[in-house]
Amino acid sequence: MNGTEVDAEQPVIDDTLVRRLVSSQFPHWADLAVRPVAHGGWDNRTFHLGDQMVVRLPSAAHYAEQVEKEQRWLPRLAPSLPLPIPTPLAHGEPAEGYPWRWSIYRWIDGDTAAPERIADLRDFATQLAQFLFALQRIDPRGGPAPGPHNFHRGGALATYDAETRQAIALLQGKIDVGAATDVWEAALATSWCGSPVWIHGDAGLGNLLVRGGRLSAVIDFGNMGVGDPACDLSIAWTLFAGASRDAFREVLAIDADTWARGRAWTLWKALIVAAGLTNSNAVEAANPWRVIDGVLEG
């Protein structure tokens, strides 16, 4: 999950529901097989539709607004990007007891990125930085400003100040409280002074695909928006280190203040997961202590 709110209304989303939705709204695809996608995501439930398409349904109300955003903006962003991103094919309506709009996309081949699937981490870091660099240079006019729809990605760190300090207090004796507070407060003292730029909002391993050991596609733009790009830097500490981290920063030409805010965004998420202040996916739940240590080391 991307924040601390938990939605009480979470419908049962399974292949039976997907078949009913597709059959009633897109009968020309009714005969295609439906089966869950392995590692289908946290914000959405994802299902194969035949061999060439995928159905994505928001898993809770606070993810539902992302559907409209992806439908509108992904086709506009795609031509300017160096790697494939999801292509919307159809826009579903609430029905069959399912309360939100949903999407059908073209399937993108590839494996979810994981360290053991990446042939050269420095090359991977360079590829991802080049993608983000291209994304940031797309005209941001009319793009969605940070807000609840993307859990304030691209907005001010101060939005999560109270939550971060609560997590630090809860982790007293388990982390270096002084160091964590210093990292957080140093970042709070900075701000993005440039024009807003496009952000992915969740450029982590779960949203990156690899083929042949190299980055092949970037998926799940539900947290996209226009604002401060610092939130897209977290992978510098969750995956990269040493030469790969240096390459990532060099390609993006990140200034010291933006780097500090990226470090703080990474720390915030790891702290609230470690402190139990948010539900989290399996990857996040397994790694917060490692990430905290990495951020505090630099």
Rank of each mutant, 00 (worst) to 15 (best):
G212N: 00
G212T: 00
G212L: 00
R214L: 06
L215V: 01
S216M: 05
S216F: 03
S216A: 05
A217T: 02
A217K: 04
V218Q: 01
V218M: 00
V218P: 01
I219A: 02
D220V: 01
D220M: 00
D220K: 00
D220N: 01
G222V: 00
N223C: 01
N223K: 00
N223L: 00
M224F: 03
M224G: 03
G225L: 01
G225N: 02
V226W: 04
V226P: 03
V226H: 03
G227R: 04
G227K: 03
G227W: 06
D228S: 11
D228G: 13
P229D: 07
P229R: 06
P229A: 08
A230L: 10
A230W: 07
A230M: 06
A230Q: 04
C231M: 06
C231H: 08
C231L: 05
D232H: 12
D232L: 10
L233R: 07
L233P: 09
L233Y: 14
S234L: 03
S234N: 05
S234G: 08
I235E: 03
I235H: 08
A236Q: 11
W237Y: 14
W237T: 07
T238W: 06
L239Y: 09
L239M: 08
L239P: 05
F240W: 09
A241K: 10
A241Y: 05
A241R: 11
G242N: 10
G242D: 13
G242M: 12
A243V: 08
S244I: 12
S244C: 09
S244W: 10
S244G: 10
R245I: 14
R245Y: 14
R245L: 15
R245M: 15
R245K: 14
D246H: 12
D246L: 11
D246M: 10
A247C: 11
A247T: 11
A247F: 14
F248K: 11
R249H: 13
R249S: 13
R249P: 07
E250A: 15
E250G: 11
E250F: 11
V251A: 07
L252Y: 14
L252V: 15
D255P: 04
D255E: 11
D255R: 08
D255M: 05
D255N: 06
D255V: 06
A256I: 15
A256S: 15
D257N: 04
D257S: 09
T258S: 14
T258A: 14
W259A: 15
W259G: 09
W259N: 06
A260R: 13
A260V: 05
A260M: 11
R261V: 05
G262S: 07
G262E: 04
R263C: 12
R263Q: 15
R263E: 10
R263A: 15
R263P: 06
A264T: 15
W265H: 07
W265G: 02
W265I: 02
W265C: 02
T266E: 05
T266W: 05
L267N: 05
L267V: 04
L267P: 09
L267K: 02
L267I: 10
W268K: 13
W268N: 11
K269V: 11
K269Q: 15
K269W: 15
K269S: 14
A270R: 13
A270I: 13
A270G: 11
L271A: 04
L271M: 04
L271H: 04
I272F: 12
I272M: 07
V273L: 13
V273W: 13
V273S: 14
A274T: 10
A274P: 10
A274G: 14
A275P: 09
A275D: 10
L277G: 08
L277N: 08
